[in-house]
Amino acid sequence: MIQTIIVDDDPFVRLSLQTILEAQDDIAVVALGGTGEEAVALFEEHAPDVLLMDIQMPGMGGLDAAERILAAHPDARVVFLTTFSDDEYIVRALRLGAKGYLIKQEVATIAPALRTVMAGQSVLGGEVLGRVDALMRKEGAASAASSAAPTAGESGGAHESLTERERAVVELVAEGLDNREIAAELFLSEGTVRNHISAILQKLDLKNRTQLAISYYRER
């Protein structure tokens, strides 16, 4: 069972989400909350598989709550479910290491998204996915402008710093494969795949697999 906590300041939304998710055979809602402070406390109490949380709430918002939770539990699976597809929110959520950013109107995608997150992948709602590439370009523009231009013989593409094997791993991550599937595809152990991904994220100064996939499509 996917042990899930739902945090949203609207009681109707909380109960509706609980009803939708508990209709699934493999999802259990273990707690409900209405503020960022409650999200932090409930996470510490229940250690859920997934925290499904709104962004704008009274007091501590979802992003601040996620920052506190992920600072203490870097492997926490935080998925934002919100009506706000604001550019700043999306970028901050990805940089924090959130595993997903979904839009409330896309209700049918929530349960499959939780399963995807449990399989080790990140999820973005359709509306968000359509904008993320442009967002990441904009975010990288300032640092790119201040960086030294490539010297003769160097490529301007960030992925040029990767080995051939690392580029193969990135391509499969971008295709949505999890570590086990990548290991089978490249005849590697899962531990080796994890090590490759950690090294790649460090080389490219990225936070998570979602950003890695985005950077792959941007470099193409």
Rank of each mutant, 00 (worst) to 15 (best):
I103E: 09
L15P: 01
V117W: 01
L21K: 03
T35Q: 05
L51T: 02
A28T: 14
K104M: 08
P58F: 03
N195L: 15
I200R: 03
G125L: 06
E45F: 12
N195C: 09
L162H: 06
R220S: 15
S85M: 09
V169Q: 00
V107R: 12
I5T: 06
V78H: 05
M53V: 09
A152D: 13
E160D: 14
L63P: 00
G157N: 15
A65R: 00
D205P: 01
R68A: 15
G125Y: 01
M118Y: 01
E44Y: 02
A119M: 11
L212H: 03
L52H: 03
D87K: 12
T4D: 04
G36A: 06
T82R: 00
G176S: 04
A213E: 05
G130E: 13
A93I: 07
R68G: 05
L212R: 00
A76E: 00
A31W: 06
Q24G: 10
A98T: 10
G33Y: 03
A65S: 07
Y89R: 08
L188E: 10
T19L: 13
V173G: 03
G97E: 01
H46W: 11
A158K: 09
E106W: 08
N179A: 13
A111L: 09
F187P: 01
V91A: 13
R209F: 04
S161H: 11
L17C: 05
E166K: 00
V169Y: 01
L42V: 11
L32C: 04
V173R: 04
A168H: 11
D54N: 11
P112V: 14
K99N: 13
E160L: 14
V193R: 01
D133V: 15
E45T: 14
Q211M: 14
R14V: 13
L186W: 07
L52C: 05
L114R: 01
Q105N: 11
